[in-house]
């Protein structure tokens, strides 16, 4: 198992010799003039007021901003959990926010992986079944049962990777917060997505667990060339991203490349 990952990591290391942060012709995921408002009673509350953003393949972008600045909404719209009032979301240059329900469902299932602040594991299912859920959703009974050994192995390998080898059969109620978030990370990855969207993944964890989750995400981002967007309050956490985006009053206020010295990989040395 480990060997397989070593190979992949090697492959990525070679790939990552190209300097990070260099823009390619088309962004992996981009937002064009996104606007979204919510209705509270009779008043309309604008949350996003025209957001333009481009995320490169393999980039780890941190989204910061005050409460209510629209961070989560941006993430939801980008991940097709919500539709924008105006503007568009592009994946590899093709518009995806106006697709039909079926295609949006499929994109959520295959292209995006979600990680939530409150883990959102299904309480009835074991850690392993929770991790398998995207695959269970993707395949019908026949397709799933035909390949269930492969899928189980994949899910078990991911649980091993996030450090939950001994917790496969435990229900969420029997896991600690950190463990639940690790399981949620494994769930986000089991469908082999291209993009992981994490909404304050460490917001509900203590400092040590939060750091561990962040390390995990950072490692996975490198291992698998995953594009990641991470919503966070914590500037220390944000500082480990490739790039930090600040949302102020529904607009992107500021881009900043993370200082070279604070890059997580570097700081570990």
């Amino acid at each position: 198992m480990n060997n397989q990952y070593n190979v992949r990591i090697d492959a990525l290391e070679t790939d990552s010799t190209a300097p990070r942060g260099k823009r390619s012709m088309t962004a992996h995921l981009s937002a064009r003039g996104l606007a979204k408002s919510y209705r509270k009673g009779k008043t309309e509350v604008p949350v996003l007021k025209g957001v333009d953003l481009e995320v490169e393949r393999g980039e780890l972008v941190a989204v910061m901003g005050a409460s209510g600045s629209g961070k989560s909404t941006l993430l939801h719209v980008l991940g097709l959990l919500d539709s924008p009032d105006r503007g568009a979301v592009d994946l590899d240059g093709g518009r995806i926010d106006d697709l039909g329900d079926r295609k949006r469902d499929a994109l959520r299932n295959q292209t995006f992986g979600f990680i939530f602040q409150f883990y959102h594991l299904l309480p009835e299912l074991s850690a392993l079944d929770n991790v398998l859920m995207p695959l269970l959703i993707r395949h019908g009974p026949v397709g799933y049962l035909a390949a269930r050994r492969t899928y189980r192995r994949r899910a078990e390998a991911l649980l091993d990777r996030v450090g939950l080898s001994g917790r496969r059969t435990h229900k969420p109620a029997e896991l600690s917060g950190g463990e639940m978030q690790r399981a949620a990370v494994a769930r986000a990855l089991v469908g082999e997505p291209e993009i992981v969207l994490a909404d304050e993944p460490t917001g509900n964890l203590d400092a040590a667990n939060g750091r561990a989750i962040l390390e995990l995400l950072r490692d996975l981002n490198r291992e698998r060339e995953l594009t990641m967007m991470l919503v966070t309050h914590d500037s220390q956490i944000a500082s480990r991203a490739d790039r930090v985006v600040r949302l102020v009053e529904g607009r992107i206020e500021e881009f900043s490349a993370a200082p070279e010295g604070s890059d997580f990989a570097a700081s570990r040395l």
Binding site: L81, D101, D105, R108, N109, F116, M133, P134, R138, R187
Partner: peptide, 16 residues
Amino acid sequence: TRDIGVLKALGASTTG
């Protein structure tokens, strides 16, 4: 409700 949201976020369809 929340579990339903999670399922949909993971790609479950309306009919599903």
